[in-house]
Amino acid sequence: MMTASGWSANQFAALLGAYRAGAGLSDAAVNALLAVYAVGLIPGLLAAAPLSDRYGRRPVALGALALNAVATLLLMLGAGSAFWLAPGRLLTGISAGALLSAGGAWVKELSSPPYAPTGTETVAARRSGVFVSLGFASGGLAAALIAQWAPHPMVLAYLPHLALAALAWGLAQGSPETCPAGAGRTARGTRPLRVARPAFWRAVLPMAPWVFAAPMVGFATLPGLVDGGLRGWEVVYAGVATAVVPGAGVAVQPLARRLILRSRLLTAVAGLLVMAGGFALAGAAATHQQPVLGLVAGAVLGAGYGLVLTYGLGTAAALAAPGGLARLTSYFWSLAYLGMFAPLLLSTLSGGFPMPRLLAGSAVLAVLSCALLVLLNRPRRAGTR
């Protein structure tokens, strides 16, 4: 289910070049459609989390998965009329958000039952991020390959997600409910738990938007800046980029696991500094129109994404109150997905500043965010490391 969520997000991102060429959509239009996903995702996260804490993971996650498939059907209708693309992207965001919060909490609770040793919660939480990243990587690449060579690309490119959603639905039927109805209520049964402690906000606010700002630049913005020498392979290149960026996030997980067991804060610091290096490489790739360097920059950005994602999910798992994991996780995902507006912001600012300079500025901002994170979470503060 988590893989299907990530797949649904990136199958559209890999087709941006095809929509520009085949449907005549402008850069501003496709970047706006990317942002529509985030507009739907954040309320989906925030609404589904308390519902799953109160009524259980299974009904909310399965309902979100069904809506995820409906959203893909609307995107398929967009091949005949661009009118359907906006509602399709909006419902994709809503359903993916619900899957991230309810499904992510379900994965963590199945991976780390109440009798598990203390300290395993951050490792268990990492699993949902890994499977989402696998969906990001495989969904975009599959859609791009179909769009490059198959007939009716704007329809057929979405069929693999429908098959994956159906498979996920069948497999999920065998998973037990981990949060019985009412577990997310107080003893009086009337008011939800307050799960967002100050330590959580200090730990995630400075870094959360970078979680998706970096990979979005890597596979949504950067391919369009280095495609001058691709000569007809733009769609495949975009698909490879959508696989390389989150794929690097998966590949870096052994390192992330070791770092987070040693220190959560060290994991975030490493991730933000790696991202800064990725933005610097992206600026060089855009300046010199180097597609290979663009993929290298995307891989570095993806590695940073994998590190900070592990940190964010681990922090939410470590600080969540009993019965409030889905809600706290949804707060983190909501902040993280603000980064999906990065391509639209860069596109808007590029009217007054060269894109390589904007990417270099992003590297500087990532370093400053790292410094702020360290300042706010120094070891002397209780509840942080």
Results as ranks from 00 to 15, higher is better:
R191G: 00
S133P: 06
Y305S: 14
A124N: 12
V235G: 07
G17N: 11
L91H: 09
G352S: 08
A86R: 06
P114Y: 06
A360L: 10
L67G: 05
S334F: 12
A66E: 04
L375D: 04
E121G: 05
A47P: 00
L328P: 02
L335K: 01
L62G: 00
W201L: 14
L346Q: 03
V374L: 14
L328D: 05
L346R: 02
L159S: 09
L349R: 03
L376P: 03
Y37P: 02
R194M: 08
L159H: 09
M275W: 01
A48Y: 00
L368T: 04
P322F: 13
L319F: 07
G229D: 08
A96D: 03
G247M: 10
W149G: 01
G129T: 00
V30M: 10
S8L: 05
G306R: 05
F131N: 04
V274P: 01
G184A: 10
V30G: 01
A318K: 11
H152Q: 12
P246E: 15
A336H: 07
A21F: 02
Y19L: 15
A286P: 01
F332K: 04
R57Y: 04
L65T: 03
A61N: 02
G302N: 07
G283Q: 12
G383T: 04
T120K: 04
G218Y: 13
G119I: 04
P356S: 09
L272V: 08
S81H: 07
A14I: 12
A4D: 01
A241E: 05
G170W: 12
T384R: 11
P114M: 04
G218L: 09
A256W: 04
L205M: 11
R327H: 03
L91V: 10
L301C: 08
L338R: 08
A183H: 06
M275K: 04
A214Q: 02
P114I: 10
